[in-house]
Write a protein that binds this DNA or RNA. Structure first.
Lengths: 237, 237
DNA sequence: GTCTATACACAGATAGAC
DNA sequence: GTCTATCTGTGTATAGAC
């Protein structure tokens, strides 16, 4: 799947998930009509990401948010019960989308190299399609409650584990040579993160997400691929 | 130089630089005796890093800082004129140390592979010796003034340029094969940053800074080294 | 449901005693 | 030089009119 197609499916699923978010938070939300709630919540989430990614969530005031959304303070507080509650909702709905996409994507391939390729591309595509949310989650991790922070760390470790499992399986099957794959998985994660953390730098240099993905994969394979696989690769070309 | 030796030289130079910081900020500091100022400033800087790296600089209150340093609010404000001023001083003194060490380190080697090795190790050692400051600078970049933010970005690009120059020179001399070295330099930087951003994760897994450095270098060389260099490498062993 | 006006808490900063 | 007590601004959150 190309990135453009991927982007579309993410946007579609966003709408569904906003509705689900409303259902889940119905208790803590005063607004009763779903349409109003979803419409406002999506504006609020977008505005929160825009403002927070400029000056940080703790420095974003409710008056900032009121200005950016065009809603009054009163209207804002019918959608959430506190600033902390807003953070939690934003956090949760983002993870909902991410989890859904990552789970479905890892099931497609079976061959280790194709699996690795798929995993890296899915992660990069997803972080590109939801860049503001990924950036926000990384930078505001400190402001989360203990429970929320643990979930954030867990989901990061889960990602790493996906890479690690693929690398280990590849080694067992003789596709990859023995290496410290724990460390390798961490570094793949680090490189994937750099893509959304330094989004502007790469945009300025006109590096596309596909170029980035291919480069990271080539780098990792140069280090991990067994010699016979490299030969196979050359014959294919 | 081993990391332990490196650590010592950094600590020595810290003392000198605190004195210099005092000299530089003499105008905006009310305290007159150098000894008092330096003693307090170093306590304040350390406490600021400790608190901010837990909850973020904007969420750190002056009362937090007062508690952590054991100094009263009044005493704090004799050392700096505002919270923003404190941020600027901390930022500047950190960069002073970093610049000094990076400049002196790049001059030592001439051969491309040794140069790359030296550059990566110096960066990792320095970020390890001053981990709280590096973490702080990365995370609080949003809170800096425009001028300060530009300096932070510049110094990041400078680092990348150091790696890029080494890689390009290596390619010209036939030690490295042709690659997109702009992107390669960015990824090296990303991996170096991951070391100080995820300090706890690596500590928990008992990965030492030397292990990390060696792994990153092996990964990069597997991708960039010309075939004849790999042969040379194997013969050496 | 949405607005305006306001309550209340707490932040940064300083004055003045010692 | 350092302390305690206090000023003033601004942030979150809500009450009540429309």
């Amino acid at each position: 799947m190309s990135f453009t197609e991927f982007q579309k499916t993410v946007n579609l699923s966003k709408q569904r998930i906003y509705s689900e978010a409303f259902a889940q938070y119905r208790q803590s939300i005063r607004v009763k009509k779903e349409m109003t709630a979803v419409k406002n919540l999506s504006r609020i989430f977008d505005a929160t990401l825009r403002i927070s990614n400029k000056k940080g969530f703790p420095s974003m005031t409710m008056r900032d948010l009121s200005r950016e959304t065009g809603l009054s303070m009163g209207a804002l507080y019918t959608c959430f019960s506190s600033k902390e509650d807003l953070l939690e909702m934003l956090q949760r709905q983002g993870r909902l989308i991410v989890d859904r996409f990552l789970k479905q994507a890892t099931e497609a391939e079976t061959e280790p190299r194709a699996k690795l390729n798929g995993a890296v591309k899915t992660h990069l595509y997803l972080s590109e399609a939801m860049q503001p949310w990924f950036y926000f989650s990384y930078m505001e991790a400190k402001n989360l409650t203990k429970k929320q922070a643990k979930m954030a760390v867990d989901s990061e470790l889960y990602t790493e584990q996906v890479f690690l499992d693929i690398l280990n399986e590849g080694q067992e099957r003789g596709v990859f040579v023995p290496r410290d794959y724990r460390l390798m998985a961490s570094l793949i994660k680090a490189m994937v993160q750099d893509w959304y953390l330094k989004r502007r730098k790469y945009a300025k240099r006109q590096v596309s997400v596909d170029q980035y993905a291919d480069f990271v994969l080539a780098l990792v394979e140069a280090f991990c691929l067994a010699p016979q696989e490299v030969t196979t690769l050359n014959q294919e070309e």
